[in-house]
């Protein structure tokens, strides 16, 4: 029987989990590499075959190393990942690193903002709906969940765009052209960059641009969150330990906050984290609707152009991002749920 309590268990768990993340990344990278090689032919021909003379194609292929055996290509690929240099896109000669810096940061900024809105809307509504079952919050929350779920993102986006344009609120892009022109790219997160520059009007402009797409995206996922939290809370409110706390005369407010809410949030962390991971790669519809230069739209564009080098680079980063997010989910879970640490 363990005599030690929480903290050393937590440390061991974190270290084990970190150690496990590395092989996971390696497996994912291998899968990405193999998938990219399954397509017949080579990336250069696929992207440029019809537009360049045969000799030029050969030269480009050699440069990119596609004449070498697959195992050394694999080695090179892993080397690229380690050095964070994922090559250049075939069609427009952008380095994958800069694609990620520019478009990736746009997506991350949008996702984080959307996620904050999801949590801000979803957590209180879900908790109120579960706490006061069949009350006005519950009925309203459920109705909201259904409606939000039924509306396609672009429709909702379009609706808000129409509404916003009535007030002269910006409805497209990351910033007004002039603001964007003046912006020093330090972190590539516009909100942070404008703050670092201390340019308040630019900051406000960027915030305005960010709000609408983040709001639409955030609302879209909040429906799922509300329902999840509501169901969990209904369950924990009937929990044995909740009844036991009541039997000790603990006030209903304390019972709900200390026991029912906290326990209801445990499974939510995992689902919310996965939602976040999905958003990182899948906010394409929102990005298109609001003309947001995110990585999802870029990925679709490169896919259509059969630019496999750009696609490989972007997908590689997605894979790593998913591993990092799931690592974070596990760490948060371990922090709030002692049972996880001993598994």
């Amino acid at each position: 029987m363990k005599e030690s309590s929480g903290s050393s268990g937590l440390r061991t768990y974190v270290l084990t989990r970190l150690a496990l993340a590395l092989p996971t990344v390696l497996i994912l990278l291998t899968v990405v590499f193999l998938l990219m090689r399954v397509a017949p032919g080579d990336p250069i021909t696929a992207a440029l075959g019809a537009r360049l003379p045969a000799k030029e194609l050969e030269k480009r292929k050699e440069e990119a190393g596609y004449d070498k055996p697959i195992i050394s290509q694999y080695g090179e690929y892993l080397g690229q990942v380690v050095t964070l240099d994922l090559g250049e896109s075939v069609t427009d000669n952008r380095s994958v690193t800069s694609i990620l810096a520019e478009n990736g940061s746009a997506t991350l900024e949008l996702t984080v903002a959307a996620f904050m809105i999801t949590l801000l809307v979803g957590v209180p509504l879900g908790l109120m709906a579960g706490r006061y079952r069949d009350g006005p919050w519950d009925v309203g929350g459920r109705l909201y969940g259904i409606i939000i779920y039924a509306f396609p993102v672009f429709f909702l986006g379009f609706l808000f765009q129409l509404l916003a344009s009535q007030f002269g609120w910006p409805t497209s892009g990351r910033a007004s052209p002039l603001v964007e022109y003046d912006l020093d790219s330090i972190t590539n997160f516009y909100v942070i960059d404008t703050l670092l520059q201390g340019d308040w009007s630019a900051f406000w402009d960027v915030l305005q641009h960010l709000f609408l797409p983040a709001f639409v995206l955030g609302l879209t996922i909040s429906g799922v969150l509300i329902r999840l939290i509501r169901v969990n809370l209904l369950q924990t409110m009937r929990g044995d330990y909740v009844e036991a706390a009541r039997a000790r005369g603990v006030s209903e407010r304390r019972v709900v906050i200390n026991h029912a809410f906290r326990n209801a949030m445990v499974p939510v962390v995992t689902v919310a984290g996965l939602q976040f991971a999905i958003l990182l790669g899948g906010a394409v519809l929102t990005e298109e609707t609001f003309n947001w230069p995110g990585i999802g739209s870029e990925l679709v564009r490169y896919l259509n152009q059969r630019d496999y080098i750009a696609v490989q680079g972007i997908v590689t980063v997605f894979a790593v991002a998913v591993v990092i997010v799931s690592l974070l989910i596990d760490l948060v879970n371990a922090f709030i749920d002692p049972r996880v640490r001993y598994r």
Partner: peptide
């Protein structure tokens, strides 16, 4: 199941 699993 009578003790809250998240609390000491």
């Amino acid at each position: 199941t009578r003790l809250d699993p998240l609390q000491t």
